[in-house]
Design a protein around this nucleic acid. Structure first.
Lengths: 187, 187
DNA sequence: TCAATCCTTTAACATTTGATAAATAATCAA
DNA sequence: TTGATTATTTATCAAATGTTAAAGGATTGA
């Protein structure tokens, strides 16, 4: 769990008691490449921290597999629109390599807030950071061309090297064919 | 301030003391159509609640005015990417009608959290709801055509009737000319 | 190793959106 | 009210992306 608490340390310092309390609602999960960590239709009640590997949130639109986001080692992943509303999620979480995650039980987490202000504050800060990321992503999607967005992704080698282009294409909001064209064009 | 506390009531019930504390960091601001409530380059230190009127967050990209979001009576507006990072915002908030807002001093608000768990919880829930909205907006921008998104906006008459089409066009991520074409096409 | 499957590229044509310019309509301030 | 400014539409051509189909590469499991 050390990697997780090192991650938490970026946001706030937890006392021994808060840490022990948090550890109790965390568990390590290992999962094989290609499998779903969470499936369609369930209400999201888990927040994941990636110890090693890669995961993506995806869904089907008109039968087409669309990637909403990728997460890498040392990052958090959760289906926010379900976690915070209690509605069943139409999205799933799949791992793109053999992956180890720490699963944080969100129902239990939320119920800790009253008695553990440090924990509430920690997740307030984590969610704020996620919120900022999505706001910045809207700007990127809406006002940069697919080519510009692809060029930006090239600066994240972990993403480009390890993820199938079809997922990158849908993440960029374009077809795989269009991404191939862009790749041919920029060489 | 009643409208604001009725809004808060949707998220959580505040005790008398929390309400009184919150009221102290709120102030009413009136501003004329077309003016900026907050300008470019400042760090965002205010969260606004709209008592009456319409506001938008916008910025310039390559000299072109881009609308990031609209907010209406009874809604919250803030430049999240600055508020939560402390970085200066490249965005401004402008009102599109004569508008009355309640300005909530964010620096003071954040410093209330430790002593007032109810207030912290309230804003945790408000920010969570905003986070969910932006996640849903990403889905809408990325995977629906401009025409589909415009048709969806038609269901919000307050937006369509009161906001210049040029702002709606940039909000949709297309040019004004393209929006005109879409409007002509669907009739 | 080999066959089957999945991934990626290429090509041809269709559709959408952008850029620019010009015309018309609406709004605003003196 | 009127002239100036701003907003919206229309037209034309260019560029970007979508759709479909086909071919070649890479990967994987038996």
């Amino acid at each position: 769990m050390d990697k997780l608490f090192k991650y938490f340390q970026k946001y706030t310092t937890l006392n021994v008691e808060s840490r022990a309390t948090l550890e109790k609602i965390c568990s390590i999960v290992n999962i094989k490449k290609g499998e779903n960590l969470q499936s369609f239709g369930q209400t999201c009640k888990t927040i994941y921290f990636i110890n090693a590997g890669i995961a993506r949130i995806y869904y089907y639109k008109d039968g087409v597999d669309i990637t909403e986001s990728f997460s890498f080692e040392g990052e958090i992943i959760a289906r926010v629109e379900s976690l915070f509303t209690g509605n069943p999620s139409q999205k799933a979480i799949q791992v793109l390599e053999d992956t180890e995650v720490i699963a944080i039980n969100a129902s239990q987490l939320f119920s800790l807030y009253d008695a553990h202000p440090q924990i509430e504050r920690l997740f307030m800060l984590i969610f704020e950071a996620g919120y900022v990321e999505t706001v910045n992503r809207i700007e990127s999607i809406q006002f940069h061309s697919a080519e510009e967005r692809y060029l930006a992704l090239l600066k994240k080698p972990q993403l480009i090297q390890k993820i199938p282009l079809k997922h990158i294409a849908s993440y960029l909001g374009i077809t795989q064919v269009s991404l191939s064209r862009i790749r041919a064009h920029i060489n």
